[in-house]
Design a protein around this nucleic acid. Sequence first.
DNA 1: CGCAGATTGGAATATATGTTCTATTGATGT
DNA 2: ACATCAATAGAACATATATTCCAATCTGCG
Lengths: 282, 282
Amino acid sequence: MASTVTTTEPPESFDDFQRRLIEVEPHLPKRLRQAAAYALEHPDEIALGTASALARGAEVQASTLVRLAQTLGFAGFSELQEVFRSRLRNRWPDYSERLRALHENARDSGDPTHLLFGFADSAAASIARLREGVQRRELDRALGVLARARTIHCLGQRRSFCVAHYLTYALSQLGIAASLIDNVGGLGPEQLGQAGADDALIAISFSPYSPFTVDLARRARRAGVPIVVITDSALSPLAGLADVRFEIVESDFGSFRSLSATFCLAMTLAVAVGEKRAESGG
Amino acid sequence: MASTVTTTEPPESFDDFQRRLIEVEPHLPKRLRQAAAYALEHPDEIALGTASALARGAEVQASTLVRLAQTLGFAGFSELQEVFRSRLRNRWPDYSERLRALHENARDSGDPTHLLFGFADSAAASIARLREGVQRRELDRALGVLARARTIHCLGQRRSFCVAHYLTYALSQLGIAASLIDNVGGLGPEQLGQAGADDALIAISFSPYSPFTVDLARRARRAGVPIVVITDSALSPLAGLADVRFEIVESDFGSFRSLSATFCLAMTLAVAVGEKRAESGG
DNA sequence: CGCAGATTGGAATATATGTTCTATTGATGT
DNA sequence: ACATCAATAGAACATATATTCCAATCTGCG
């Protein structure tokens, strides 16, 4: 009867819980591990949500949550939840006060949280602007171009490289043929060599614009490849080459720019193309 | 009929709620006032408790709580409670539900701006959580490790690769010796081959953890290289290898995760290391 | 390949919880 | 002091939620 269900004491504090979970996790079956991971990643949700809502979030069955609780020594899920609730109760009483204080303090000292808050603010600002700035029409046009493409080539260098890489990753995950022009071994031109009018190129570049990106985009243009450009200004050398152009204004903190808005847009494009293809019977 | 039960909009945030209550409180009958006072004095209890438990605490009848909620414009007690819960959850009023709804919406409306808004929200939520979650102590320890390093190696594959790449870019821009382990041509192990105790490794991996990243981090550990880990859970296979560990909870939209918080942290680390080196006369 | 035990999904169930309803109490004005 | 109406307590109800159970599935092993 009590084979997997070890009848030990249930953890009483959240820290206990976490330690205990790390200890037994390797021996846990798949779904229980999945639920356990979710619990550690979303402690607040666990504290406040209902079993079935959480089950949906963790993509598990509600009964799995109960079983997990029992495996850890609780009588049922509700007892486990109580641990998470008490954690919430004991959290710094007025934490928004505390955050503000932290923010003030950090300003002048060599406190790295100051930097963190700065970057966080600037990312949040970028995202807020993106929400307002992006036009439905441009999105639709870009999707038109991309959904039609046989292969979507992604181009970006230096700072923008990570966006191009991520786009390639996301598109591939969605089953869309995508190719990253990473210029490894100087083969950038060849990587784009086969692209034609029935493909598409997403080119990403921010000031100072990488000459390599601009050059390759020009070649693509000449080869008749439709181009979607993500850049930061209408004056960008990429602007004139674009069939569809997105201008992203990222706010910066110090001399570093957030990339949050750019990533949001990239993910949107990828997923939207995926859905568009799915519905038009790809 | 509707004399006391004003049919106005219910307050949406806790602050609204508080203002509203202070405003109407003088005209409230005895028991309702009693319940209202209890609510303002024990907001955490309200968020977590059940109606009848709270009723006992406030020495009123459960139905009184319902009436109070209705008097304030809510449909029932549960709606009122949701305001208190979102306060605890840190003013992202049931955002996971909201995101799910947005996603559903985006799916059948075919409007890509819905997707964009979803990703934007989810990025904003991630960033908000990052601000709360990151501890000064961990940042300091990470900076200690990194400032001391001769070369900082950055490791990440698949989804996490772009973070590793960006880190390498940013560190190099700041004049810090950094090296990206990109595993091009399968030379990953060799790229890390020379690293020793006077270097450092930043390893980034999220579920599902790339075996390559885990394997290489293990080797680095054996070679005595100090390791800073950025991952998403205490259960990550990287967790045990870390000298310093950051747990980043990115909220996801559909099945795609934002990387905003991760990038914020990465930028913070890079710039903070730069500053630390500058002041200690690098 | 087939068996046994473990694991899981989903329906069925029991319980707990929020809400509504009604008789009673308390207050107000005449 | 009486009549009238709002307010309340507590029971009755409907709903939501956790839990249990069983059949289906997966996994490890002979």
